[in-house]
Amino acid sequence: MSSLRRYADSGTVSDTLLSVDGLTTVFDVAPRPVVAVNDVSFEIRKGETLGLVGESGSGKSVTAFSIIGLLQSPGRIAGGRVLFQGRDLTQLPEPEMRKVRGAGIGFVFQEPMAALNPVMRVGAHIAEALIVHGLASRAEARERAIDLLRAVKITDPGKRVDDYPHQLSGGMRQRVMMAVALACKPQLLIADEPTTALDVTVQAQVLDLLRDMKAQFELSLLLITHDLGVIAETADRVAVMYAGRIVEQGTVRQVFREPAHPYTRGLLASIPGDTAGSRLRAIDGTVPNMASLPAGCSFAPRCAHRMAVCETSFPSQTVVAHDHSVRCYLNGGQP
């Protein structure tokens, strides 16, 4: 709730495309349920890129899957709301939700090879998106597919449209994934680690393309990554996730210049510096087991500034600057 109020002064409500409020996702597994996403709130405005950053297992992907209702049993949304264009997606019946997927919210996966059906041609993937949403007949779909392949800068699209995924390079596959995701002109694109599986040189090209597409298709973007460099280059705002919670969020500039949470500071400090030969800094300790989180702040066991109160309860959210909030006792958080 506080996040809604917080942003109310920085823009009109109608600017908000997606508003996630108190989202909590639970996996009902033995011996006790695991809370993978805990009271997560954030907003994405029209035309904005929000970077969701965190280590593996911090709940980034589960958050994304919860938003578009793709959680598989035993996962379920236990609380909160996901408002997209004024509708709560968590309450939407499945047939309505299907219309949102693809047409309202596009999704780009981490592994383009795995996310493309190996026995379907490139064109068929794009055509499927169009046909599912009734946007093109089978005959028109091929032309549209070629146009989209051209839009994502695939050379010789007329020929590539008949290729199978295995005939493409990793970067080309990710471009195809993007063409598929953008086929139905969604307002929001969720990109789950879109560059992680790619070569470094190709990563830059894909990020460039992502920025281009954002402008061309007037997209908002939820960019999930564990790479702060990608965030710095691509995102307007950033939310840092740790053990299922957002511990800090704000504008990229603000968070990178004045990180308020010890975890964010640790992450930023562990980016390799320019000086060759200097030791790589790492955050001490390891990510907690989601099945047995500490009672208080989940980062407390690894935190250099740990206090007694950190081990008893999780701090509330405090605003440290305009559009910059954090959940830490060091910054005035309350139990």
């Binding site: 592994e111 059906n117 598929v180």
Partner: peptide, 25 residues
């Protein structure tokens, strides 16, 4: 569990379509 089946679902494909086009082959 194949990612391309999940990806097709993320595109808004119906269950029948998923089964016939992506799973059954």
């Amino acid at each position: 569990e194949f990612e391309y089946v999940v990806a097709a679902r993320a595109l808004g494909a119906s269950t029948a379509r998923l089964l016939i086009r992506h799973v059954m082959p």
